[in-house]
Design a protein around this nucleic acid. Structure first.
Lengths: 227, 227
DNA sequence: TTCATAGTTCGACCATAATCGAAGCATCTG
DNA sequence: CAGATGCTTCGATTATGGTCGAACTATGAA
């Protein structure tokens, strides 16, 4: 009767409150165990286990067993991307769960989107990379130019290492709430973790807030100035 | 307890099969009425109405009243973007709905889109009308030229009758799966019904297939040759 | 006006699936 | 080994929400 991918199934998976809570918890990029996710979602471990196996079957999660623990993380960047999109839609339609605490400003400024940098600083970095011609956007493809390769190598990132990875190096991740793009893919991931290594930034696992140190913010501003 | 946008609510909206069908139908970019969407989703009009008001409340749709019709389209391209992402996820996890039935070839060739002709023959007709300068496309507006007026009058269509109608005479209807336009509006409607009057074509209400008779196909080909 | 068509609202029915208790595996520790 | 911890499976209960018939409103046509 109908044609095309079964979008309803995937959406229904995300559409349950308990599962949605688990997925948002996983947006921090950190792998979590069944018990932790149960706590996040406010359900018992049995229920959580059932939910998680459904999410796994649906291809949204990547499970890893380690001893008697089972760690779950988001399956890939695409999943994170869709989740961010849904957050944008929910926020746009004024369907925020009331909570305009002080953390919101920080979240808008810099936050973790799965495992790369999002928020104002994320889009600033993206725009700056484009403006400096370190990245070029070709249709849907995003390519690192020669100067961009030098730039990130200078920053201390091993590109040949990254390329071993099967996942794409650069990816555009659209932040719907701001209608701006930021950088995902293995390079986006590497940049964020490099910022952490350099002690420029530190991420709060609980809230997805990325807080930059005074020095880190200065260095960042210098590297990714706009205009 | 929880923080952030209520992603579960939006996802649950998309997660119902009937609603998902409606949304995918609206991915064509065309505004559809409640009845059409009910047909798309395979539910009754009451059910469709209920679903649509929920989708509207959720900010996913943009409703427009036109006479006694109520047209729905996607609220904005952010919604479409999220839907695309979900399709990607569903496709990626091998959750495709099987798609190649025997009727599909017929549907691709000629089908009813609301009440005008779509499919290959629909786009052929559109292209031919443009090529013969019977129609000119001016931005978003589609205008019937003097020669076009003579052309359709020759075909036995009463234009003054059509113009009484408040609905636009010509409308472009984009078929995204083929990325081609075909002719909608009251003229598109009139053309299809004229084909039926002339016994050139007959439409199957169940499947939306439009089947041309041998003679009808020949006449059609002669009128709307391409090149 | 009267009839027809498009859509909404109400109410009742029913199916799906979320939930948790209890029991069962698996893995680590002493 | 026994005991503890992390997780899964089974079964029963429950509630949410999708569905349609029927009645109602609104717009257009004759």
């Amino acid at each position: 009767m109908k044609e095309g991918p079964d979008i309803a199934h995937v959406a229904a998976l995300i559409g349950d409150p308990a599962r949605a809570n688990m997925l948002t918890a996983l947006m921090s990029g950190k792998a979590l165990t069944v018990s932790e996710l149960a706590e996040e979602a406010g359900v018992t471990i049995q229920t959580a286990s059932s939910h998680l196996s459904k999410l796994d079957e649906g291809g949204l999660l990547r499970p890893r067993k380690q001893g008697r623990h089972k760690y779950f993380s988001l399956a890939n960047d695409e999943v994170a991307h869709v989740l961010e999109g849904l957050m944008g839609l929910a926020a746009g339609s004024g369907h925020l769960r009331k909570r305009t605490g002080p953390k919101d400003a920080e979240l808008r400024r810099a936050r973790v989107c799965y495992n790369h940098l999002a928020g104002d600083m994320g889009t600033q970095m993206f725009d700056s990379l484009i403006a400096q011609s370190h990245l070029i956007l070709d249709g849907d493809d995003l390519n690192l130019t020669r100067s961009g390769q030098a730039f990130v190598t200078d920053l201390g990132i091993d590109l040949t290492d990254l390329r071993k990875n099967k996942s794409p190096l650069c990816r555009e991740c659209l932040d719907l709430s701001e209608r701006r793009s930021h950088l995902a893919g293995s390079l986006g991931r590497a940049l964020l973790s490099r910022f952490e290594d350099l002690s420029w930034a530190r991420r709060d696992q609980k809230t997805r807030v990325v807080s930059f140190s005074a020095n880190g913010a200065k260095e960042f501003e210098q590297l990714f100035s706009v205009g």
